[in-house]
Amino acid sequence: MEYFLELLLGGLTRGSIYALIALGYTMVYGIIELINFAHGEIYMIGAFTALIIASVLTFHGFTGFSVLILASVVAVIYSAAYGYTVEKIAYKPLRQAPRLSPLISAIGMSIFLQNYVLIAQTSDFLPFPNLIPELPFLEEYSHIMGPAQLLIVITTAVVTIILTLFIKFTKTGKAMRATAQDRNMAMLMGVNVNKIISNTFIIGSALAAIGGVLIASHIGRINFYIGFIAGIKAFTAAVLGGIGSIPGAVLGGLVLGWTESFATGYVSSDYEDVFAFLLLVLILIFRPAGLLGRSAIQKV
């Protein structure tokens, strides 16, 4: 029973990691039906920014939570700027192009950003400092869950709730939903569609940066390539949950995390990915739009 619980919590952490990144994918897809392959790289850039800021702050004698918060804030701003710029450079000029063009552009952007960091920083793995302070009350349960895991799970939950409320109740959220439904109509109703799309990228990138800081603290190492693998898994989670749906991304992430955790725990880690993708195939056969996705009516 304890083993089961440990696997459950391990899967929860892993799922939350996927969910945190998957939110960005799903938001962008919801608005402009683009799979933003560069999203994983924004996550990686967030982690790198946090590493640089944290090193500088630690050097100047800062400690504890102040480093975590300052590094996260800078990483969020920096990554949001990247997300905004990527959209302006790579996607906006292709707004009217066939859907395949921005997709290729996204893949190109992803490769560009990876190699940019490779050249500007290093190809080696870098140690990522443990920015999350030890919590004394968790000491007793450290064999089950550490502070980093706890913080990841809490952050994912909080972010999801805020995001859902934001989209439901604010004016920008309403404009986002309108843009997602029908871009031309929204434009006619006076919604500044370009601004809304930019905002979506900024929010998505900010989430990726938060994910980058927390996840890198949990893993303890980063290099230029971490965004790719995390991105693929998060993308899978988003599709699993129903791409375009925010609760779907979270559910998809958790389901994927648990599948992998239990497959490793009870079968073999050799088959971790096999089970994850088998599940994806099965769900897509029976629910082509994903767990919580609504199948869109083709616009004629």
Partner: peptide
């Protein structure tokens, strides 16, 4: 390259 090895 997995994000987490806690299950293993």
């Amino acid at each position: 390259g997995a994000v987490d090895y806690s299950a293993v």
